[in-house]
Write a protein that binds this DNA or RNA. Structure first.
Length: 777
DNA sequence: AATGTTAGAGTTTTT
DNA sequence: CTCTAACATT
């Protein structure tokens, strides 16, 4: 078929491994793609090559990613390579593709044709509503926890009946899961997990359908395979069928060293399982890195080599050593931030002078990475004081804003009046005299009749009932008025008639919200055009049937837009456009690259995070996270830690991160001023630093089982004079108010001495030893 | 129903 | 410290 693999211009500029991956035959294969090794390029070129050589038609291919951003990127690059209509292709996110599948087979999936998608906010409010209705003690079963439980079950592919119950609490949670399912089904809504699970089950249980898709998708490409959860892998297996069964070939692309989403169900183990279950003989490693200088790569390689059970990969580059990785220690978190700002200023000055390698050309080429969002504040303060423009990633996205969600809730009620989540959101917004009492009555009525709140308003008597009926009438009138109108007109009508705009006009801070609502109108219009409906298309056809010729979905423009809003929450478009320093968590930085990267807060307890370092897997994931952070940098990398840090209103004394010990000495350069004024001023550093419990708990021994670190009594000299001089780390004490507890650590000397005590009934407290009333147990 | 007060919690995040 | 949610007050 392809006697000379390099004949196609598509393959030009690829290295041997990349070209080999692109031109693989139709078999199951695993591409281990290291950071910066051209993974996306390989994926898109593979698709283009398959189509160009006639091995597959656009319809015979399925490519799946995790984020909309990645999917979009793939499609953009693809259409640049080939003259092909990409819109009809099955390229998208797991959830996007499942949605498409369920829209096409809604009847078989036992869904309403107008099913709506719940985002996390909606899901939580649905569970809160459920908890209230069934009088669940939300102290014992917090709605958030229930939500996580349900999501985790679905990620594992478990329905209520499949969950193994270990204790009465579990039983209750499963019961809630069951009730939640009934509620969702009645209301015609699905959450994110349900999109996946329902699709998987439909494929599993419907032989004809499954065979159809197995036959259709000859090539299945999976991006970021290391982040797939159990259910997603099972879904892929349904599509591909058994080995040798004539189904499609899975090309899995991933990097086990960059698996950082275990906390949301990702299973790195899927990679090894895939190799075993599909007898994968075609494994290609992309180890040539085109991004970073070797000091940076060496650091990454050296660090990650401390993880066990890796598939094994070592990045290399033909670029030189480059700048050393600079390490800085500061006295306080604020000093750390200030130092960083000064360093940035210098880098930007050097960049202006056109020194090339020494400076940075644009602020947007500088990124500050941190482990947790709370760390951004002090950095923001320093940047703000220096009048340095910056942008913080994360936070509320467009479709998650309250005013947008209100408008969408009205839209959803036009589509699906049974959606009680949307009903509840706007029944009294803007306020129309329907208070908690009225809503309670309505819920009682709805439960008694076993129907939606929308359909039970007539059962509520008196003024409350009149108000509720008026609201429903308003929605119904609105639906009447949408006849023959396009989407933009409908939204404008809605904003006007519901009084949303009016409400925000009266509000002091409402101007931004009104602006956002107007932006929603624009977003809707550009969506409708881009999706090929045509700007003036009637948004809600009378008979409900409308088939998108590209996708085969039976979606009206309105329904499609609502889906779009649920599945793509949009960017947090904060001051985009301006050249600014980039601030984000390490997680958020995955997939990005910058000339210069600062990794801050490199401290025990922060990075690795204290909640993750007590078990082996958690620590390994923290290390992978660090690996991701390091490999974001092209030319310059800074690592910094601080001796003290304000966290939750308390000053913490953190040890420097253990990860420093895992970096290669030759690549590092310590740039902390030798004569640091603060070193002596620090209160009893030795004592403060010796105490954290985990210090005595070495993982280096290769322990494979999790061991909780135990406080170890210190040999240190007494830190406190006076009555509490006997207090030591690890000692059991009794406090007149807090009861019994264990001393975790001690810091400071003399009158400043404080002990951190973990009380069994009141949690961890810091007590001043000069005043605390403690007795030895 | 709007506004003020207090208690509690506070990794990481996409869909 | 800082944000949120629940509670209390007018």
């Amino acid at each position: 078929m392809h006697s000379s693999p390099h004949a196609s211009p598509l393959l030009q500029g690829l290295n041997n491994e990349q070209a080999a991956a692109v031109t693989l035959p139709q078999t199951h294969a695993l591409i281990l793609a290291g950071a910066g090794s051209g993974k996306t390029r390989v994926l898109t070129t593979r698709i283009a090559w398959l189509m160009q050589t006639g091995q597959v038609s656009p319809g015979g291919l399925l490519a799946v990613t995790f984020t909309n951003k990645a999917a979009k990127e793939m499609l953009t690059r693809l259409s640049a390579m080939l003259p092909v209509n990409v819109r009809g292709m099955w390229v998208g996110t797991f959830h996007g593709l499942c949605n498409r599948f369920l829209r096409a087979h809604w009847k078989l999936a036992n869904l309403s044709q107008t099913f709506q998608i719940l985002d996390t906010q909606d899901q939580l409010s649905a569970i809160k509503r459920l908890s209230k209705q069934f009088q669940v003690d939300d102290e014992r079963f917090p709605p958030k926890q229930t939500m996580r439980f349900i999501a985790a079950c679905k990620e594992d592919g478990l329905r209520p009946k499949d969950v193994v119950v270990r204790d009465p609490d579990d039983r209750k949670r499963v019961e809630l899961y069951e009730l939640y399912e009934i509620q969702c089904q009645r209301e015609g809504v699905v959450d994110f997990g349900e999109l996946m699970l329902r699709s998987y089950e439909l494929l599993r249980d419907n032989d004809a359908l499954r065979e159809h898709y197995r036959h259709r998708f000859q090539h299945i490409l999976v991006d970021e395979f290391q982040d797939t959860n159990k259910l997603q892998y099972a879904w892929l297996k349904q599509l591909a069928g058994p080995v040798g069964g004539g189904g499609g070939a899975i090309l899995a692309v991933g990097d086990d060293d960059q698996s950082i989403y275990a906390f949301r169900g990702a299973r790195v183990g899927n990679m090894a399982d895939f190799v075993r279950e599909y007898n994968v003989t075609h494994q290609i490693k992309l180890e040539q890195n085109y991004r970073s200088f070797s000091n940076i790569l060496d650091s990454a390689n050296h660090l990650i080599s401390h993880n066990k059970g890796r598939l094994g990969k070592n990045l290399h580059t033909t670029q030189g050593a480059g700048e050393p990785v600079r390490v800085y220690e500061s006295a306080t978190d604020f000093a750390e931030a200030q130092w960083m700002v000064e360093e940035m200023k210098q880098l930007l000055r050097d960049g202006k002078d056109g020194e090339g390698t020494n400076g940075v050309q644009a602020r947007s080429e500088i990124a500050v990475l941190y482990r947790s969002n709370a760390q951004s504040r002090v950095i923001e303060t320093a940047l703000f004081n220096a009048a340095m423009p910056y942008r913080v990633y994360g936070g509320l996205r467009f479709f998650e804003r309250a005013e947008i969600k209100h408008a969408l809730a009205y839209l959803r009620l036009l589509e699906n009046p049974l959606d009680d989540t949307s009903f509840m959101r706007v029944v009294n917004f803007p306020p129309r005299g329907i208070g908690a009492r009225s809503i309670e009555q309505l819920q009682d009525a709805a439960r008694a009749m076993g129907c939606a709140m929308h359909d039970s308003v007539h059962a509520v008597a008196g003024k409350a009932g009149a108000n509720l009926s008026a609201f429903v009438a308003k929605i119904d009138v609105l639906r009447e008025q949408t006849q023959g109108k396009n989407l933009r007109q409908i939204i404008e009508l809605l904003l006007d008639h519901t009084g949303l705009i009016e409400h925000y006009q009266a509000e002091r801070e409402g101007a931004d919200r009104i602006e956002n609502l107007q932006e929603l109108v624009n977003a809707a219009e550009s969506f409708v055009t881009q999706e090929g409906f045509g700007r003036e298309a009637v948004a809600l056809p009378v008979d409900g049937q409308m088939i998108n010729p590209d996708t085969g979905e039976t979606l009206s423009p309105l329904a499609a837009f609502l889906t779009h809003a649920a599945l793509e929450s949009g960017d947090n478009q904060a001051q985009a456009g301006q050249d600014a320093i980039q601030l984000m968590t390490v997680h958020a930085s995955k997939g990005l690259e910058f000339d210069c990267v600062f990794i801050t807060g490199m401290e025990e307890g922060l990075f690795p995070h204290e909640n993750s370092m007590n078990d082996f897997d958690g620590l390994e994931e923290e290390r992978r996270l660090m690996y991701v952070a390091i490999t974001r940098a092209r030319r310059r990398l800074y690592l910094s830690h601080s001796q003290t840090r304000m966290l939750h209103g308390q000053t913490r004394y953190n040890l420097k991160s253990r990860f420093f010990e895992e970096l290669p000495e030759h690549a590092l350069k310590w740039i902390t001023p030798a004569r640091s004024a603060f070193a002596d001023a620090m209160p009893s550093r030795r004592d403060a630093w010796q105490n954290p419990a985990w210090q005595n708990n070495a993982w280096g021994g290769g322990a494979a089982t999790a061991v909780a670190p135990k406080p170890v009594a210190q040999r240190a000299a007494p830190v406190s004079s006076g009555p509490n001089a006997w207090v030591r780390s690890g000692v059991q004490v009794f406090h007149t108010k807090f009861g019994e507890g264990a001393v975790v650590s001690i810091e400071g000397v003399g009158d400043d001495a404080r002990a951190q005590v973990n009380f069994s009934r009141h949690g961890t407290k810091w007590l001043a030893l000069s005043v605390a009333k403690l007795t030895q147990v």
